[in-house]
């Protein structure tokens, strides 16, 4: 099956907003990410397994709230107690995940086709998010993740890099267009570039 990205018919590449007379490095850069593996892993309440002993792509799972365990290809986001979201460039990892997490202890769900992923880069990335999200972004550090809302849309935020900030936003696929327009509206004053 050919995967059609949620924003493929909406995104128009170029420079927008207040971008004139500004260095391109100072603009907010927005792009849609697709072709990533997204898997939700939930450990049942009855399960006695120690999740810290399990590894996927050489990454250990963490019970620490709001943290992301990662390497160059894969990121494992803490979602809630006993609940994680794995995001990876390696699509074949799904087989490994299904082998590692047995049916009696875990619910493994492939969400790859049901999420929109928008990546925002630039020194004003947090300022853009502050306009629609009530979270205190001053405490957001590298490899932290959280669930919150942006203008009423439930999103997952993952800070990948700092200085300049590179932030990934995940939303339900059906809310992708609404989220995209909210993000671009909030970026107008800084000037933004769509890649």
């Amino acid at each position: 099956m050919t995967a059609i990205s949620p924003l493929s018919n909406i995104i128009k590449k170029g420079l927008f907003g207040d971008y004139e007379n500004k260095n391109e490095n100072d603009l907010v850069k927005i792009k849609e990410l697709n072709d990533l593996l997204i898997v939700q892993i939930v450990q049942y309440q009855s399960s006695k397994l120690e999740i810290e002993n399990l590894k996927v792509d050489n990454i250990n799972f963490s019970r620490e709230a709001l943290t992301t365990a990662c390497n160059d290809n894969t990121r494992i986001l803490w979602f809630a107690p006993r609940n994680w979201m794995l995001v990876s460039k390696k699509k074949e990892l799904i087989n490994n995940v299904k082998k590692t997490f047995n049916d009696s202890d875990f619910a493994v769900t492939d969400l790859s086709q049901s999420r929109t992923i928008i990546e925002i880069c630039g020194k004003n990335s947090k300022e853009v998010l502050k306009k629609g999200c009530p979270f205190n972004f001053n405490i957001l550090k590298k490899n932290m993740c959280l669930n919150s809302i942006f203008n009423g849309v439930t999103i997952t935020i993952d800070l990948i890099e700092e200085n300049p900030d590179r932030i990934r936003l995940f939303a339900l696929r059906s809310f992708g267009e609404s989220l995209y327009h909210s993000i671009t509206d909030a970026s107008l004053e800084f000037g933004y570039k769509i890649d």
């Binding site: 709230a65 709001l66 107690p81 009530p134 979270f135 205190n136 669930n147 919150s148 809302i149």
Partner: peptide, 17 residues
Amino acid sequence: MLHIKCPHCGLRSQNEF
């Protein structure tokens, strides 16, 4: 607006609850 301290996630806005 209320701020509620979630035992799992920390202090958050009432909008999330």
